[in-house]
């Protein structure tokens, strides 16, 4: 990261209620340009609710939330255009080919046909996937799909990309390569906002926040959190926080 940190996500006192249930209870944090930010919490801690708001898919009850320069209350549509999103559960259409998927997502984000073609060739070359350009996604190994899904999520060159549990089940070499791609994007200035259940992945992040019962309990660099909680791993930090919640 270079000189003064510029906030690309600003959240102040974010509250989201469903009836009498408070899913997000006064969340406040900032995420900086080019940062890899890990967003952790046990099932039911309120992560998904918060992410949906940050992606412009859900309206907060109260608070001040700006994402990529836009207001979460009034400019949700603009937020959607300026972010990328990838989830492990669904990211690409299995019955479309590699190129068709790229063209579809490029089109959805309003990129011109010519630009799509150019960028697609570039992308396929970087991923060394020219040979499978016209292969159905469903026929590709999981690791390839994940790399491609990430590339498609940043194809429209968003300032922020949200990765929702991105790396289940791939072999360690593929997983390392995937995190290398994430680091490369961050080095290019794309902010990466990532959720995961796997605490060893949390260690790849520049900073992480840990949620429990709708609140952020801890937020710092992995090294600082381990020091603060006298723990040898983020897993230990997480377990202590989630069990005390």
């Amino acid at each position: 990261m270079t000189a003064p940190a510029e906030a690309v996500i600003t959240v102040k006192d974010l509250v989201k209620k469903f009836g009498s249930f408070t899913a997000n209870d006064h969340l406040s944090f900032e995420v900086y340009r080019g940062e890899i930010f890990g967003f952790l919490g046990a099932n039911g801690a309120g992560k998904t609710t918060a992410i949906r708001i940050l992606c412009g898919l859900s309206v907060p009850t109260s608070g001040y939330i700006r994402v990529a320069g836009f207001d979460a209350f009034t400019e949700a549509e603009k937020i959607k255009k300026h972010i990328g999103y990838m989830s492990q559960r669904f990211s690409l259409y299995e019955d479309l080919t590699v190129f068709e998927n790229i063209r579809l997502f490029g089109g959805i984000y309003g990129i011109s046909r010519k630009a799509i073609r150019e960028r697609a060739e570039e992308l396929l070359e970087t991923l060394q996937m020219q040979a499978v350009r016209d292969t159905l996604i469903g026929r590709l190994p999981l690791g390839w799909r994940q790399k491609l899904a990430f590339s498609v999520a940043v194809f429209h060159r968003p300032g922020i990309v949200f990765l929702d549990e991105p790396t289940g089940g791939v072999d360690p070499i593929t997983r390392k390569q995937f995190w290398e791609m994430i680091h490369a994007s961050a080095a290019d200035g794309i902010t990466v906002f990532v959720t995961t259940h796997y605490m060893d992945e949390a260690e790849y992040c520049d900073r992480i926040s840990i949620m429990a019962e709708g609140r952020i309990i801890a937020l710092d660099t992995p090294a600082a959190l381990k020091k603060q909680y006298h723990a040898s791993s983020i897993n230990e930090v997480f377990t202590r926080i989630a069990r005390n919640a």
Binding site: A42, N43, E165, G168, H197, M199, F238, T239, A242, R243
Partner: peptide, 8 residues
């Protein structure tokens, strides 16, 4: 797979 760290 897919279960949070505490439950795991």
């Amino acid at each position: 797979t897919g279960v949070d760290a505490i439950s795991r």
